[in-house]
Write a protein that binds this DNA or RNA. Structure first.
Lengths: 211, 211, 211, 211
DNA sequence: GATGAATGAGAATTCATTCAT
DNA sequence: TATGAATGAATTCTCATTCAT
């Protein structure tokens, strides 16, 4: 469920294999491999050569699918964002501000345990050119805005005790983003457990006393 | 109060100045400038040349004070950690687990608004060689351990409601570390205000209901 | 008048067209397109990809008609030379050295206003391998020899005043070759006008005073 | 007399030599060597590596003196132009249009026998970026304008028979530029002889009949 | 201590060319 | 004949680092 997309080491180029795999699959394979490496080692320590070798291809082959290394980076971040947005769009649902905030936290936390989710925090937008960077910063702002809005909504509808939405959003987003740093696939808790724990934990202080 | 260390543009080499400034001051100047740039642009986008130029020196001069670029990076992180540790040692004080946790949060939050504090989160230990990296990872573990301990203490002494110290520590540390990403010197809140807000906010859900 | 060969943008591969076009026509189409691009942008700035794209084909298709990029280059030059030679053979005619020189100039000048004519000066033989290069250099020498011979003939038959044929040939050929650099299809003079002007101009100083 | 600047194979880096040579000399050495190679082999066949090796240095050393390969190219062309302009400025002098035209031809012809002079015709402005290219095209236009002006002046003052200055300038400049292609240092004529020959030859047809 | 000069080791990117289909 | 995919071989340029002075 939590898409371990990037983890298959199965390369579409494995020796004499079926070459009929769609172009899209190759694009995805490149992206997955690159992302995995970016997250493991950091963008600047990953060479195009390494990405290629791990896929049993040579470097120039990658340029059939992406214009540049930076292009891959951008693509990775955007894919991560898209996956998050999709779930948010589908699952945020209705209800009080608090209820929706909890759902957002759950979705966000779960996403943060996937490779693509981690890309949202572990990739550095300063490695992109101005245009791509701006696109990403805007999406980051929107995400932040969503947290603030749900909090403000909650305060308005009485499900959340009065608080500064900006600071509350910072605190929650920080805790969530941090998951990308400490989460390990072989850790003791499933993504769902983590999500459930954080949904409670990060809203415990926000509930009305008389809730 | 906490060092705005990295911000002085005063270079010890400024034109005709007294060249007698102590070696230590120069070391610090290099470190400050490098750190400021690392944080602004990211380690890999900062060249030794740029660090030097900003100090009105030439590149090789830097090698009188640091063995390598990586050495500067390590040094920056360590200085940040030392400053934090110093305050923790001096100010954590006595009291219930909850009380001490709140103090730690305050110290940590304030520190996160300084350039050196940010270095703890914004510098990437993967840019270091194994030895230095391990040294840092250990300190990071210790820091995490401290959070967990205070929480566990609080649970034990009844000041904190029963909770998983590991997850609680992750949530709190995440929220705190995130400050390094969003805080701007010219933002609307002083470091003290942020610290006070977070000390309350991050422990609000931990207090005993009947606290 | 002489082929505006390279200008048709009509590709033999245009969408659903009759694919029965003779192989020779395709060869010519490739050559024309390549030459046009070589002259516009310079050999090294033209990629096989670009040539192919402009013809609505893919790169490897070109290799059905030419062994290599260099092969196209060679072919272009040779075609240009052939066209020139053909006219020279057909139109140089008989008469005094001066009369024949004037005819050569006219032919050469007109040719220089065509894409293929320009190839004689604007393509660089150093981009060819030794074998092809030698073939071209020989033809260039022959061309030069022809100029010198007509001049020497003219001197011998009294139609041209005594002069150094080598230098005279250099001066005339230089002026003519330069046409390839400055001529634009949409310029103010027709090829014929240019040819007529140069035929007079370049021989004005060669006529006997008492001619 | 005319600078054989680029021909010295004396490298300022020759083994253990005097390292005191001025930076300017090194810049010039790089430029000279690069230009020599550009002219011998064509810009695209010359690698930075080759330039460096011939100077007993390594590639990156060149980047201390020029920002890029293109920068060297631009610099070469400009130096050639400057040398020409200097002589033109100093030696064109006064007199009838015809007299001045002859002097220009002499200067131009002599220049064309030097490595730097050849750079004016043998380097391709399309290898430059738009900005540098424009700078060069403007200078080329000015040069052309000078030829036309002197011819027009001559027509006006009666020293030159009525003729189209544009075409006359093309013919003369073409003959002169061609020198850059055929001239060899070990050829049978000295630069001065060539210049004298061309000064007469290229204006022979321009004199008034009754001159 | 400081510098000018140079270098070794990459790293991304390009492109003509080939090959299986 | 045409193509999609891949590759080998450059080539430019960068940068941390060193060294003679």
């Amino acid at each position: 469920m939590t898409g371990s997309a990037a983890n298959e080491n199965a390369s579409p180029w494995l020796p004499v294999e079926d070459r009929e795999k769609a172009r899209d699959q190759k694009i995805e394979a490149v992206q997955d491999m690159a992302l995995t490496l970016f997250i493991e080692q950091g963008y600047h320590h990953v060479t195009m050569n390494e990405v290629a070798e791990r896929l049993n291809v040579t470097k120039p082959a990658l340029y059939n699918y992406f214009r540049s290394k930076e292009d891959i980076l951008y693509s990775c971040w955007m894919s991560g964002h898209e996956r998050l947005q999709q779930r948010v769009g589908a699952e945020l649902g209705e209800g009080s501000g608090l209820a929706r905030l909890r759902r957002l936290i759950r979705i966000y936390a779960e996403t943060m345990t996937t490779t693509y989710g981690k890309s949202l925090v572990l990739l550095d937008d300063r490695d992109l050119d101005e245009i791509n960077r701006r696109a990403i910063l805007e999406r980051k702002r929107n995400l932040d805005g969503l947290f603030r809005k749900l909090i403000a909504d909650g305060v308005a509808d009485g499900s959340i005790r009065p608080t500064d939405p900006r600071m509350a959003a910072f605190a929650i987003a920080g805790a969530l983003n941090w998951i990308g740093h400490w989460h390990r696939v072989d850790g003791p808790m499933t993504p769902e457990k983590i999500a459930e724990d954080f949904a409670q934990r990060l809203t415990a202080g926000l509930e009305r006393d008389d809730g």
